[in-house]
Simulated scan of single mutants.
Amino acid sequence: MTDAVPRSGVLFIGGRSGVGKSTAAEALHDLLVAADVRHAVIEGDLLDLAHPAPHVEFPEAHLAERNLAAMWSAYRELGHHRLVYTNTVSVLEQDTLAAAMGDDPVVTAVLLRAGDATTADRLRRRSGGHLPEAQLAHSTRTAGRLDAAVRDAVTRVDTDSLAPAEVAVRLASLTGWLDA
């Protein structure tokens, strides 16, 4: 008797710069490790980080999707079937990204949100104290665009008053991965 290969699942975590996507993913990773839940974490911002930006110079290259497909294939070969994927706009590109995984995953998409004051504080800490106004303005515009553009099925989580571990518990409950 052969064990059935479980259907994969992906958690897309999106949100503005400084909202806590990477920090929440790390906290979720720790929570899943403590529960011995097999998973992988991919920081999507790094899949096509190059200069000149591949998506500008070669938009048809779809480098992030190609790199995700290659990485996920390697994880699947090792028996992983749960993926935590962070990227600012992943909640807008969830269909394309899920298709790139190549194995029809169950998709959970979450938009993390935070107000300007919280975000500014987080960005200042991340950058060592200085926050250019243009960076906060861009983050604010991105927040508005994401909130207006995401589907109703995307869960919105306000992180202003939550510690990363609390966000991780909320994310884990949305995926059901601790219950499996």
Rank of each mutant, 00 (worst) to 15 (best):
H62S: 12
A114R: 00
G128M: 06
E65P: 08
T96R: 14
S161F: 04
E60H: 15
L31G: 02
G79T: 08
H80M: 11
L49Y: 15
A153R: 11
Y75M: 13
A137N: 12
L123K: 04
D95F: 05
V167L: 05
F58Q: 13
S127C: 00
L112F: 02
L31S: 08
D158A: 09
A168W: 03
G128A: 07
S73R: 15
T108C: 04
G79A: 09
S161L: 09
P59F: 10
A148M: 03
E65R: 15
D48E: 13
E93Q: 12
R124G: 02
G79D: 09
E93M: 10
G144T: 05
G129L: 04
T96A: 14
A109Y: 00
L92G: 03
G102E: 03
R170V: 10
A74S: 15
V150C: 03
H51F: 14
E166C: 04
R125S: 07
A64E: 13
R141P: 00
E60Y: 12
R141Y: 03
T118S: 06
R66S: 14
Q94E: 11
A134N: 10
R76Q: 14
R126G: 06
H29V: 06
D104F: 05
E43L: 06
L63T: 15
I42R: 00
V89K: 09
D36G: 08
G44K: 05
H51R: 14
R122P: 01
T118G: 02
I42V: 14
Q135A: 14
A61R: 15
L47K: 05
V41E: 03
L174I: 08
T155M: 03
H80A: 10
A120V: 01
I42E: 00
G44Y: 04
H80G: 08
A53T: 10
L78Q: 15
L131Q: 05
R141T: 09
V89I: 10
P105I: 01
H138D: 11
L63V: 15
L111H: 01
G128I: 05
D104H: 11
V154T: 09
A40H: 07
Q94P: 00
R113M: 03
S127Q: 09
P132H: 09
A172C: 06
L49C: 10
Y75T: 05
A61S: 14
L32G: 04
A99W: 00
